[in-house]
Design a protein around this nucleic acid. Structure first.
Lengths: 216, 216, 216, 216
DNA sequence: AATGAATGAGCCTTCATTCAT
DNA sequence: GATGAATGAAGGCTCATTCAT
């Protein structure tokens, strides 16, 4: 059956996401999956291949959301949608699913499994955000500038996943709970991001106008 | 001599920062330090204690910069200073020093060594940023809001350290080089951050005025 | 089909002869035979039984040559025939057949498969040689002496199979090639053997005469 | 102490010589040596290195006998000495020493450890025999022919080590005991060899004379 | 104060084998 | 009759650690 294989991937993904590749032993994965020690090497070859398979599985399950914006939908709206979506992924605390966590690990310390992850998941999401950001700018705005906007937006979202433990230490439990609450956080990240983007637009337009004036 | 102890810490910090705790073996640390295999347990007790010591050493060396702003210095100026400083730490590519890298690891996956790191390094820096951010707001602005600003600023800086490998994969080598160039990056992060903060201030003031008007 | 069974034996014989029993895995045998991993245990029970079957097959294929000497054929002629035949078996370098090699292994380190090999192959050949040797001696020569002759003859032949690698190391490639060339080698082994046998005969006859004289 | 290392080599040599490289487990070697499983990898690196070390040790202990022939000693005498020496090595049944056995294995199936064995042990012995054989021939006898003589002599000796088990099967226990008895065997091998060599000499001289006559 | 030798637990992997179909 | 999946024992090896000096 393909059952064992799947159970193995699930158990592995779970444990890998908690402890990382090195600290995870194949024994505990097998035990968690209710499978034999040799099953891993039968199905996957070795520990690393199992890991890669788990990462693949994680980003297969985690489909890139394709928003259907109504025509004429303002970019502010779209950005809001994306930020909320990202924040949801980052903050879902009761997640029984290890998918995100494993992907996060992979993004922080890329291994062989990373390329695919980037191509199938990160890149599409980045592109979507880039499109949205582009709408804020007048035509012809440099790609680098728009990419930077995306990075600043994404950075804020990621912080809340990567640095949750530090947040708790730094801010104390109570503040932490508030600062990491989904609705609230997403709203403020959105506001900050909009401010940042608009400032960049203004600066860009200003310099452009200046240049135009200089030219004329 | 105390020399061996110090060499051990240096070698350990170096290797820990490259490979992480699990993947580092005490043997290679000793070898790199030119010390005996038993030296670690003689000087530190065990591998974990050595790790903690290395982290401690890292954040001792990495002193929290205390800027001496001239009186009346505008917060924009201060923020610029801080962001440049942070970015410098994050981006120094030719860093022969493992200090930052080890701290970053610790922040992403805190261990026993983390509390001290937070108290001695992160917290002071966070406070400084919080003070600066506070200057942008009218008195009485909620702490949570101001903390959020700091987080959004810091998030952008951290991204450029944590996700360098992904950046390369995602954007291609050429774009990558440009997007991760210090001066340029810091400038744009500053602009974005200023925009974000001012937007938050405006929103806060607006709502405050609204509330005030409602009250009156 | 019986086809799989046969393919399995062929593949097994091949690999066993190259690597020996321990170093051969059933997996690679099955793979080489294009059969399923379970096929071995289906057809033979276990690895050892397969090995024995391969050895059996080897000595079945390798039929004991039965020379048809013309009546009155001198023993020198017969010995020449046998030595050439043996040498041919030992030296055939381009042998695509693993039969001899496997038998050699078995002779050097006998296993369960050995008894049959001895009975069906070695013993008949030994007997034939013994008969030939006997012709050199006057009637009544002790069995032990004649057996010794056979062993000395056979020993020379075997050397060229067992110690080929050492020969190469010891003598250098060029000399090696010459010393292991069939026609040449067989001729010299024959000459040496004839000399040895005749010396033994002479010594035996001499001592016999002496004894006879003493008796009379 | 170097004690463990030596015990390990002894135990390993013993077991390797009995079962061969593959069939020997490091666990049983350690157990036999009263050492820990990790000691092997501490002292030797891995199983193969241990094996090589054991082979080295075997041929270090087994010094090449250097005979002191009185001047004018006839080659027959020398040959007798060598054959007895070789036979002694080959036949010592009560040998608690695994040295010879391990060397024999190495000669039959050379591994990485073989080159040294050949250089330090086989080659010197071969040379000594070659010198002795040369004395039987008139000056100018071709090297190949003389080498062949050595091989035929050595072959006979080796047979009694390699094929003891087969001998037992083939000849029956009683005959076996007699045929493998040292004094007796060596004497007959010597006689056979002398006969072989003299025949070769005669043939060589004869052909030489023939050629000489043809020339004149 | 410092070290080379030794330890034992545990790692990943491979093996011949058997099970269920 | 034949197979893909699964098993468990055991393999070589590495690790952090401790011992005896």
């Amino acid at each position: 059956m393909d059952d064992t294989r799947q159970k193995l991937i699930d158990a592995a993904g779970q444990i890998f996401s908690e402890k990382g590749f090195e600290a995870t032993t194949v024994r505990e994965v097998c035990q968690a999956a209710g499978a034999n020690i040799a099953a891993i090497h039968y199905h996957f070859g070795d520990k690393e291949r199992l890991y890669i398979e788990a990462v693949k599985h994680a980003n297969c399950q985690q489909d890139v959301v394709k928003f259907d914006w109504p025509p004429g939908c303002p970019p502010e709206r779209k950005l809001e949608g994306m930020i909320f979506h990202l924040m949801e992924m980052m903050l879902e605390n009761d997640s029984p699913s290890w998918h995100i966590e494993l992907m996060m690990r992979e993004l922080a310390r890329p291994t062989a499994a990373c390329r695919e992850l980037v191509e199938e998941f990160i890149s599409p999401m980045f592109s979507q955000l880039l499109e949205i950001v582009t709408e804020f700018f007048p035509e012809g705005a440099p790609l680098l500038l728009r990419q930077r906007m995306v990075m600043s937006v994404v950075a804020q979202c990621l912080l809340y996943r990567y640095h949750r433990p530090i947040g708790r230490l730094l801010l104390g439990e109570e503040t932490f709970q508030k600062l990491f609450e989904l609705e609230f956080t997403a709203q403020q990240v959105l506001a900050f991001s909009l401010g940042g983007i608009r400032a960049a637009v203004a600066q860009y337009v200003g310099s452009g106008v200046a240049e135009a004036e200089v030219r004329s």
